[in-house]
Design a protein around this nucleic acid. Structure first.
Lengths: 151, 151
DNA sequence: TATAATTATCTTAAATTTGAGATATGTACC
DNA sequence: GGTACATATCTCAAATTTAAGATAATTATA
């Protein structure tokens, strides 16, 4: 196959290996998360709040790419579990913040170490230098794919 | 931050940028797929059959990482749409193959070009050399994550 | 100010996915 | 042959997710 031909199929192959890598890496983290009684979406919401502080529901949904209906559903569940609370925004009364409770913060702090270990195990096939290169490329890829996605 | 500390967080960051890249790249392909009246899982099944030929249901599920119940459901839908047929295996009567119909093959052939364009658009933020490097790293990452995942 | 357009959240029904277990078949071993 | 274990598909209920539209609040514009 010519160099030309090789390049013509690169995008397709990149898509394939990206999907495969994502699926198998998340297989590790999903199993770990479920062991703590959460599903991946619930964990995603808690993780955003844990690292970024209180966030409007809307913005949480944007960060983890789920629908508005799903955000309502998941936040309801987490509120029932008393891991977070809803706080109406005083400046803009359409907006509602989600904020971790003390219980939620402690819970996240308690499961994060094993979550991190699961990730390290999942990606340990790359050495530090390769990880650095992969981070650089994936950052660029993700950023550009987002920019090129027009509603 | 020390080099040591930087490396300690590499795995976490790799996970983050991998998820972000995957989510935004698939946002492109998912929209494209839905325009043809399919959901991503249905497309995934058809794509496997299109590229690999008739496959036992079990093996389709393994390739695209979905549950056995889901495979039955999706194959039912595709069979109703007359895009594929079930074919019992003569050698092993537990096994059922899925095989594209002529309609299914033609359909895939008709949507694949625009699917490919959507992918090319999604990953066009990387130049050919970067794509090659990313493919190499993601291939290694996916393979090792799969190997390290023990049931 | 009034009107229109936009935004954030929620509601509801339908679609999708999973998980547990049922059924039937195949394989290994005694 | 018979028994235990493994495998492939399917069934069914419950969990999750989406899509469309309702409601309320905000912003932009005439």
């Amino acid at each position: 196959m010519s160099e030309e031909q090789k390049h013509r199929d690169d995008s397709l192959q990149l898509m394939v290996v990206l999907a495969r890598a994502y699926n198998w890496v998340t297989a590790h983290t999903t199993r770990e998360i479920r062991q703590h009684g959460l599903n991946p979406t619930e964990f995603g919401v808690l993780e955003v709040l844990y690292h970024k502080g209180p966030q409007p529901l809307q913005q949480i949904g944007e960060k983890i790419l789920i629908s508005s209906g799903n955000i309502t559903y998941v936040v309801d569940k987490l509120e029932k579990k008393q891991l977070l609370v809803r706080k109406p925004c005083a400046e803009d009364r359409r907006v509602i913040y989600a904020e971790l409770t003390e219980k939620g913060t402690k819970f996240l702090a308690s499961i994060f170490p094993s979550h991190k270990i699961a990730i390290e195990q999942a990606v340990s096939g790359l050495d530090p230098e390769e990880k650095g290169k992969a981070i650089e490329l994936l950052k660029k890829l993700g950023r550009s794919a987002q920019e090129r996605f027009h509603k």
